[in-house]
């Protein structure tokens, strides 16, 4: 457990949101290369309205993950996202630290 404060814990938030009847997607850092801001296992949870909690990077790629999550909530199919400076989209959603990360995003349900 990373935080003793349950109100800040993404997986606790995900369960709570789901209990409130909100659609929820869970994003998880599953692999990192080089210097990555958040360790493997870190979570970002997103609801159908685009609200999110937690982090998978230092804020560089959360926006992209949140918009993908909206599609994943809609079609229910999990997706693997990859971010890094080598990406063509690096300017938009790259990691300034020079690392690369893979983020698995799945619908909760």
């Amino acid at each position: 457990m990373e935080s003793a404060d349950e109100t800040l814990d993404p997986l606790t938030i995900a369960e709570r949101w789901s209990g409130e009847g909100r659609d929820v997607a869970v994003a998880t850092v599953v692999e990192t290369w080089g210097s990555a801001p958040r360790p493997v296992g870190s979570h970002l949870v997103i609801d159908g309205g685009g609200n999110f909690h937690g982090s998978v990077s230092g804020g560089c790629v959360e926006g992209a993950v949140v918009s993908e999550a909206t599609d994943i909530i809609a079609d229910g199919k999990p997706r693997m996202l990859e971010f890094g400076v080598a990406d063509e989209t690096a300017w938009e959603v790259g990691l300034s630290c020079g690392g690369r990360i893979r983020v698995y995003v799945e619908k909760l349900g």
Binding site: L11, T28, Y104
Partner: peptide, 26 residues
């Protein structure tokens, strides 16, 4: 992620018991 698995995981974490959530990426 299965909601029941998440609930069970949160129970284990709150009780300070170790657990591994295994996800088949395929």
């Amino acid at each position: 992620m299965d909601l029941e698995l998440l609930k069970q995981l949160n129970i284990e974490r709150a009780a300070r018991r170790a657990a591994v959530l295994v996800t088949d990426l395929d």
